[in-house]
Design a protein around this nucleic acid. Sequence first.
DNA 1: TACCCCATGTAATCAGTTACATGATTAT
DNA 2: ATAATCATGTAACTGATTACATGGGGTA
Lengths: 191, 191
Amino acid sequence: MPAQDLNATAASLLGFLHDGPRTGWDLVATAEAAIGPFWSLTRSQVYRELARMAESGYVEAGDPGPRERRPYEITDAGRAAFLEWASREPGEEVIRFPLLLLIALGRHMPAGQLIPAVRHHRTLHAIRLQRLEGVMQAVEAAQGADPFAVATMRFGLGYERAAVAWFDDLPEEIRGTEPWPEVPPVDGAVA
Amino acid sequence: MPAQDLNATAASLLGFLHDGPRTGWDLVATAEAAIGPFWSLTRSQVYRELARMAESGYVEAGDPGPRERRPYEITDAGRAAFLEWASREPGEEVIRFPLLLLIALGRHMPAGQLIPAVRHHRTLHAIRLQRLEGVMQAVEAAQGADPFAVATMRFGLGYERAAVAWFDDLPEEIRGTEPWPEVPPVDGAVA
DNA sequence: TACCCCATGTAATCAGTTACATGATTAT
DNA sequence: ATAATCATGTAACTGATTACATGGGGTA
């Protein structure tokens, strides 16, 4: 049975499970930190995919620990399914950026209406950029970091830099005449 | 009836319909050109949303032209619904980038396995970048371009530049030792 | 006349989101 | 004791994707 039945979200869970048993809760946190910037998933999804994969035999639930913690362990079949998934051609990226959609259609809205939204989102990106820069510094200082993880982190960094630069170049018509709001300070590195 | 029932995809269609009647087919093409880089939609979706919006009275189907072409026209209710949608807080962006997911988990795959995929996607982005640069030049030369459309185009440009730069900085472990494949020439401007 | 492209649509399925329900443990 | 938070899960829904079916029109 050559495992044609994994979606990317499920596959990513199998990926994380290579490092040892994890509960659904753990996996959400791990995914958020490791792939959050370019692959989002929700708790519901994680629990559902874990249940599915348990049926397919790709993972096995261990004994529940305290608090209903139910750690899942990857099986040999799971590892095989993961490799099968990894050997498929990855599809193109999909971006859904509501603010950009709004701006694209801005011509048909009252003038100045989207300035507040633009300012707010600029702040969001500035915060993420700051945080990522902190993490990158920490990672680059440390020896023996996973080059794959570093590479993807670098992508996030480049993306956020481009985003903030783009905001800063917007014409007044769109960004307003006020200076940008201050970016609240962020605590240093995050796991 | 204060129009709480528009999703972003439907709203974008209403946006395009401000410029005059369009068929579903037209709208797909328009959307692809205007918002493709940061908002994808499929034909199925377009026809479905048009049918829905016709029921809600936001659009009206005109007389079918040759070849079953069925142009839709926006109504006053449609314009109102569009403005209502436009006044809502836009959500954060979502990115789904399968290649990055693959790289993030690269540690668990046979060495070198993802080099071909990386090379291929680098080419895709280089092509898009070239094309966008052509379009931008054309747009900037022309007088009276819609500043909103220009702004969103600029975002795409910044994004693609960041993407290509990121590919070019990848370590050999991930990008391979070969030079990048040649980027096929692209025809100048695209509508 | 045959073929390709334009054009519309339906059906089935899958993925993702949101809201809800529940209980156990830790810290105060 | 009580509140906060950890942790799991279900249900309902919405949105997105893929595959399929159909036929007209233009062009070679």
